[in-house]
Every structure is written in C-alpha cells, then in structure tokens.
C-alpha cells in the first residue's frame, strides 16, 4: 500500500495511466481485437517522439524560455542528409547515421551560438535558425527520391516477438538519459541551472558550457531522429519532422517535467509519447473525421495539463 502511494506520487505515473486507459477504451471498442498489434504499432511510433522528447526535456529543464523550436527543420534536413549519404547502399549506413548526427549537432551548436552571441531568448534564436535550416533543406532535398538502404529500412522495422527492436534500444537510451540526468554531473548541472541560474553559477557550474552541451545534445537527437524516420517511412521529406514541434514539447510537459525548469523526468516522456500515439490510434479506430480528431486531441491535451496542474515556479 505504501509502495503504491509512493508510485502515485511520481509525476510520470499519470501519463502511463492515461495511455493504459486509452488502450483499454480502444480494445473495449474493438471487442479485444488487435490489442497486441496496437501496442506494437504504438511502440514503433512512440520511439521517434521519445528521442526528440528527451532532447527537448533537457533543453526545457534549463529554465523558463528555453525551448528548441528548430527540431522539425533539423529532423527534415537530417533525414535528407542521411538518405543522400547512405545513397541506398547498405555499407554506408553507419556513415549516414554519423552524418545525420553531425548535421544535428552542428544545428544545435549554431542555435546556442545565436543565443550566446546575440543574447536573445532561445525561442527566437531557434525560430530564426529553423527558418534558415528549412530553406537549406528545401534547396538541398529538392526532388530527393533516394530510398533508404534495404538493410537500414528493415532494421528500423525489425521486431522480436512483436516488440520493435528500435523501441528496446530507445528504452536503453532512456535509461542512460535518466542516469545522466539524476546521477551525473552534467544532468545535475542542468537541473541546478533550471532551478536558479545565478545560484548555479555561484556554485561553480560552468553555465555556458552546460547550456552549449544541452542545445548540441538536443540537435544531435533531432538529427538521429531524422535519419531513423527516413528509414522507417522509406524516404526523406521536408515535412517529415513537422509534427514533432508540438509533440516534443507536449510529451515533456504531459510527462511531468516542469516548464519552469529544474525538474525533469525521463519515464514521463515515454508515458506521454505512448499516450499521444495511442490517443490518435483510438480516434482513428472510432472512425472520427480529421476535424473531430484534432479537436479532441487538443481538448485532451488541455484537459490533461489542467488536471495535472502547474507547479509554482521556484522563485
């Protein structure tokens, strides 16, 4: 009983409960049919949201105003870079992934350079950067119709007993991210900056370096996500990352990370990503029109955030 109460006190448990409820509602509707396949599909789609969600989580944890709006453009460009470098060739998969990672890291570093050099709010810096990245992508990826190498495409769709391998790898990655956040100097520094940037600086945290690393990390994860998405959906596309602007922010907040900064958790990102994907599946199963689906998605996001309530900022 005590352990149950302890579990319920965790901020991330609600997103998992929400995901479970949505799943139960859907299989109640279909009469138990397709419940397993739905989880498989949800896991494979949630992976892409989790990867960028974790990057966004570190950025948001840096404190008020910190957010990476360049992720969609970043994902789009990286997907094109990965496909061009791989060029449908199995032997180039690793090189292509590295190229996408490098592209994402460069974008993240450029974002921080703008924030630091122009001393502008990260929202505007990443927004301006995303305009430029978008143009580069449109120009670079025009008419790009390179299919991913067969090995890479089957890797991103590979399942063992109905569990996508990519999801298993992403779980391992999330465990790593959670350890980095809670047990390593880097993560503790991010939390400290989010709680009080001045106190963190006075305590000897190298604020500039940590912020630089965080934006670069977010960029790198966006780049990786772009390459994986291109593999999963069999091709790069300028608009491939569009939905991840809202999704990456939404999973972070629904997952129980404080928008005021200084408080983060990784499991919630998973719970919220599953919740959002299952929610879409449910509405599709119910056969509602696109308009109703958007309307309900929006109302549920507002409802969830209202029920979860905001935390008072620490200052």
């Amino acid at each position: 009983m005590a352990s149950l109460r302890l579990l319920l006190a965790k901020p991330w448990i609600w997103s998992f409960i929400g995901a479970l409820l949505v799943w139960l509602a859907t299989i109640a509707f279909t009469g138990g049919y397709g419940g397993g396949g739905m989880i498989t599909a949800a896991l494979s789609l949630a992976v892409f949201t989790v990867i960028v969600g974790v990057g966004q989580m570190f950025v948001i944890t840096l404190g008020p105003g910190n957010v990476d709006l360049s992720l969609p453009a970043n994902i789009g460009l990286a997907s094109a870079v990965a496909m061009k470098v791989m060029d449908g060739n199995d032997s180039m998969i690793a090189v292509g992934l590295l190229a996408a990672l490098a592209c994402g890291m460069a974008i993240g570093a450029a974002n921080y350079l703008l924030i630091w050099a122009l001393r502008i709010p990260p929202i505007i810096a990443t927004l301006s950067a995303s305009f430029i990245i978008q143009s580069i992508d449109i120009s670079y990826g025009r008419g790009l119709q390179i299919k991913p190498p067969p090995g890479f495409a089957s890797f991103t769709n590979w399942q063992i007993f109905g569990i996508p391998v990519l999801a298993i790898l992403t779980v391992l990655f999330s465990v790593g991210a959670a350890i980095a956040l809670q047990r390593m100097i880097y993560g503790r520094s991010v939390l400290a900056i989010g709680q009080n940037i001045r106190a963190a600086w006075l305590a000897g945290v190298n604020v500039g370096r940590i912020r630089f690393l965080t934006y670069t990390l977010s960029g790198a994860l966006g780049g990786l996500d772009g390459a994986l998405l291109a593999g999963y959906f069999r091709g790069a596309n300028v608009d491939i990352g569009n939905e991840y602007l809202l999704a990456s922010i939404a999973v972070v907040v629904i997952g129980g990370t404080s928008v005021a900064g200084g408080k983060a958790n990784v499991p919630g990102v998973w719970g919220a990503a599953l919740f959002l994907v299952l929610l879409l599946t449910m509405l599709n199963t119910f056969g509602v029109s696109a308009g109703v689906r958007l309307l309900l998605t929006g109302l549920i996001i507002v409802g969830v955030i209202t029920a979860a309530g905001g935390q008072k900022a620490l200052r």
Partner: peptide, 23 residues
C-alpha cells in the same frame, strides 16, 4: 488559476481551433 504553462495550453488550443476550422 491553475498556474498552467501558457505554451502548452495554447499548443493544445491550436489543435482545437484547427479541428473546428476543418469541421
């Protein structure tokens, strides 16, 4: 009243308005 982050609330509302517009 609920001390909510406006970014998230309006993000949700952007879906609502879009959905209504399509309807």
């Amino acid at each position: 009243l609920r001390n909510l982050p406006s970014i998230v609330v309006t993000l949700g509302m952007s879906f609502v308005w879009q959905g209504l517009a399509i309807l």
